[in-house]
Design a protein around this nucleic acid. Sequence first.
DNA 1: CGCGACATGTAAGCAGTTACATGATTAT
DNA 2: ATAATCATGTAACTGCTTACATGTCGCG
Lengths: 177, 177
Amino acid sequence: MRTLKYAILGLLNKQAMTGYTLSKEFNSEIAQFWNANHSQIYPELKKLVAEELVTFDIEISGDVLEKKNYTLTEKGKNEFLKWLNKEEPIEKISKDVFRLRMYFSNNLDLDTRIRLLESQLVQHEVRLKNIRQSMSQYTTIPDVDSDRFGDFLVIEGAIFRETAMIEWLKKCIGYCL
Amino acid sequence: MRTLKYAILGLLNKQAMTGYTLSKEFNSEIAQFWNANHSQIYPELKKLVAEELVTFDIEISGDVLEKKNYTLTEKGKNEFLKWLNKEEPIEKISKDVFRLRMYFSNNLDLDTRIRLLESQLVQHEVRLKNIRQSMSQYTTIPDVDSDRFGDFLVIEGAIFRETAMIEWLKKCIGYCL
DNA sequence: CGCGACATGTAAGCAGTTACATGATTAT
DNA sequence: ATAATCATGTAACTGCTTACATGTCGCG
């Protein structure tokens, strides 16, 4: 599916940047639904250059350090927009090890189940708190055509997701009491 | 992480079965949070035999067809329980292509956004309806020590997950109107 | 001068998907 | 007979993770 390809094209569409900066982007809001290590990003950028979807120019930082600043080409922008406009079927369910463990939970003591569930619960509560923290920057709904609109949407999606997870965990704990 | 290994051990702990039957299991309730193709299952079973976690005996079906019926060994059962009891940190967020697309959605016409969101919405509504259908077999909460308890929990988890997704999609559509 | 962040790459290996390959059994 | 399902495997490839590998820049 080459999703990383389109993630990179989308980020470069917002702003030209280096592989290193791209790699850091995957630690910000976008990390709520995608991520990649630099070891995957650098080879992908190389590929995108070969496909003529991006170009780069070298900037010298300090004395000798070469930074490759990547920019979308016209072809790259077109391919990105084509991908973005395409209607896709929903993905098959995403894998979840904890749910798998709960599926087999009748093999555990009730105490252990509660301990495992409580542990998940606090961790998800922390995560939700952090997401709400990110949301606090938005006091009003951003304009639908601004770069911040997508950011706003996915943060809200993450809140829904975490809230549902927390509700479920609490219900599971209730069954085990 | 060898999660498939533990998924197989867990299923064989419930009941001895063939690779083919295991492969079908991944199309039932368990498909809500894990799956595997037969091309991954057969090699994994071979590995588990080598690790002495499972054994098999060959049954002849009909005249000549050899079916390998796999059973958990004592060692396999222990390793499964060890995995099940272990406290794990929550997984890093799961990847979601649609959320990635919405992150970049300011590059789309409002009409297109609504079309894409509506398309997702109906698909998730169908999925939720099917999950509720699975849930309808449970008129009471199953006993915490029965095999059906885990099944019940994860179906409920899937309902929470899909409901949250649907709520979010509706809210997104609202922003685009 | 030393440390943390900046910056770019490659290699080995694991997990998972799609395709290739074969054949038997059962129900219509 | 023939189609659907049962049944078991391998091969090639993609995507991703972890580890290896190197070097610069800016701040204190």
